[in-house]
């Protein structure tokens, strides 16, 4: 290496003066605008460290960060934004809170807000059991159809949502209990089998047979108190309609047998304890609007 000035013959450009195995490096400096932009960026970054939150520091035995002199905090910004949106919605929330459900349903603008809010709340709270499209699954009712165990009017849906089903923490919860006919030895296995045959004839899925005729007598004795004559159900008691096409726990013979033998008892939380009243109202309106509302 040498420090003498050397100019490249071919290009006429000075070299850096370094030499490795006769290889020299041309000294073509960076463009000035680039260099000055680079310096400006360095100055900017130092200023940024001082003004804005920047460096992690270990202070008083814990990791924290330099807060910056203007005290900017993205979390505060987000919280302010959320508060701003909530304040903007408050007008509608107040109206939903003040008006009764059928009145809201007549108000196109308010309904739009309620359905959007209901959809969001449904996705957050109800979809895990009832499915994102409220289509339900075995043991979890489909909320799109017109079959309602506890009633499908706005008010019925609202009460169910508010107080839940078999939710013991709520005194007004919807509650009923189907006896476990075989497990508790109220009926014998043969009798349960006969009743099963009869129940299947109610919805027209099976033909009347000798067994179903025997089951008919047992049904009249044991089941009609709740499920009524012909198995049409009773919404006051939450007794499902056995004569329609919809089976919460399956409509095949084995499932129906199991339902009679061991009983079924699903559960829904009382959402009145968990969500604010406006959200529960929005949910009631949303579920009612899915297509099965009465």
């Amino acid at each position: 290496m040498t420090d003498t000035k050397h100019t490249d013959d071919v290009t006429g450009v000075d070299t850096t003066g370094h030499q490795w195995d006769d290889i020299r490096e041309l000294n073509n400096p960076l463009p000035k605008w680039w260099v000055y932009s680079f310096y400006a960026c360095i100055v900017w970054s130092v200023a940024y460290w001082i003004v804005m939150p920047a460096w992690p520091i270990f202070m008083n035995g814990a990791w924290t960060y330099t807060g910056g002199v203007i005290g900017y905090d993205q979390r505060v910004v987000v919280e302010n934004d959320i508060a701003e949106v909530a304040a903007g919605r408050q007008v509608y929330m107040d109206q939903i809170s003040a008006q009764d459900l059928p009145t809201i349903q007549q108000n196109v603008e308010l309904m739009e807000v309620a359905l959007a809010g209901g959809r969001a709340a449904f996705g957050d709270n109800c979809a895990p059991c009832h499915g994102s499209g409220a289509q339900g699954s075995t043991g979890y009712p489909n909320l799109n159809d017109d079959d309602w165990i506890w009633g499908g009017s706005l008010e019925d849906i609202h009460v169910t949502l508010k107080h839940g089903i078999r939710w013991e923490a709520d005194d007004d919860t919807r509650f009923n209990e189907m006896p476990r006919y075989l497990t508790d030895e109220i009926l014998t296995a043969d009798q349960v089998s006969d009743v099963t045959d009869y129940v299947l004839t109610l919805s027209g899925t099976a033909e009347t047979t000798e067994a179903s005729a025997r089951g008919s007598e047992i049904f009249a004795r044991e089941c009609t108190a709740c499920h009524m004559d012909g198995g049409i159900g009773n919404r006051e008691l939450g007794a499902p309609n056995l004569a329609d096409a919809i089976w919460l726990y399956g409509g095949d013979r084995a499932s129906v047998y199991e339902s009679i033998a061991n009983a079924r008892a699903g559960q829904m939380p009382a959402w009145g304890d968990r969500l604010d009243p406006v959200t529960v109202k929005q949910l009631a309106l949303y579920v009612h609007a899915l297509g099965g509302g009465e």
């Binding site: 994102s132 499209g133 409220a134 289509q135 159809d145 017109d146 079959d147 309609n241 919809i246």
Partner: peptide, 8 residues
């Protein structure tokens, strides 16, 4: 979602 709904 749902694709179709069966009524009672």
């Amino acid at each position: 979602n749902p694709l179709f709904v069966q009524l009672s």
